[in-house]
Design a protein around this nucleic acid. Structure first.
Length: 209
DNA sequence: GCGACAG
DNA sequence: ATCTTGTCGC
């Protein structure tokens, strides 16, 4: 692993990011997350029907990882196991929701964007903390606050069930759609259901190993 | 040089 | 992310 090389890859992938909506409808959303035990990464992918928030299918995958967690290069650590879990799904999904940032990233290519471009899928990043940029104002239950980076809006800080989460487009979705899908996918937790369920499943997967 | 720093 | 008991609150 070479950070300079990683940054080059991110820059190259960032050129392929599309920030326009390419879907007429978003019916199924896949949430992905992972849990760790030393170098073992346990990833989970959960497909949820947006209209009912019912789980359609869930799969897990384990993979040994050698890349440590480095802020800004999260994708290089978690990507392998997550893609493995996604490939095990038999169900189709329209869009990916990823734990981490989309374009709200130093190179404009966070984990959500990275996955979206590699898999050629619409994707959205949802994070519990900001990595870079700044929030303009304070989010209220009814009004999200803009995340500004290099003088442009790259996402929103959203108040979700009394907690603040950070939403940014990953690939093939607009800022407005990213916000809309996350809102529709959120029920009784701060994180949208697909992510919350993937988080629980990844933890369960690690335990039962 | 110092501080910040997704999971 | 993970290490971890009790504890405050609905």
């Amino acid at each position: 692993m070479n950070l300079t090389r990683f940054a080059e890859i991110q820059k190259k992938l960032s050129r392929r990011i599309r920030l326009e909506d390419v879907l007429e409808k978003v019916e199924r959303v896949a949430g992905v997350d992972a849990a760790y035990s030393e170098d073992a990464c346990f990833a989970a992918a959960v497909v949820v029907e947006l209209a009912t928030l019912r789980t359609v299918e869930e799969k897990t995958a384990m993979q040994t990882v050698h890349v440590p967690y480095i802020p800004g290069f999260f994708a290089f650590r978690e990507m392998g196991a997550v893609i493995k879990a996604l490939r095990r799904l038999r169900s189709s999904y329209d869009l990916l929701i990823v734990e981490g940032h989309g374009i709200a990233h130093p190179s404009g290519c966070g984990f959500a964007s990275h996955l979206g471009v590699l898999l050629r899928k619409p994707s959205i990043g949802v994070a519990k903390r900001l990595l870079c940029g700044s929030v303009r104002g304070i989010p209220s239950p009814e009004k999200p606050a803009e995340i500004v980076l290099n003088n442009s809006v790259v996402g929103y800080a959203v108040e979700s069930n009394r907690k603040v989460i950070y939403v940014s487009p990953g690939n093939m979705v607009s800022l407005a759609t990213a916000l809309e899908v996350v809102k529709k996918a959120t029920h009784r937790h701060a994180l949208p259901e697909p992510l919350h369920r993937a988080h629980l499943l990844a933890a369960r997967s690690k335990r039962g190993y």
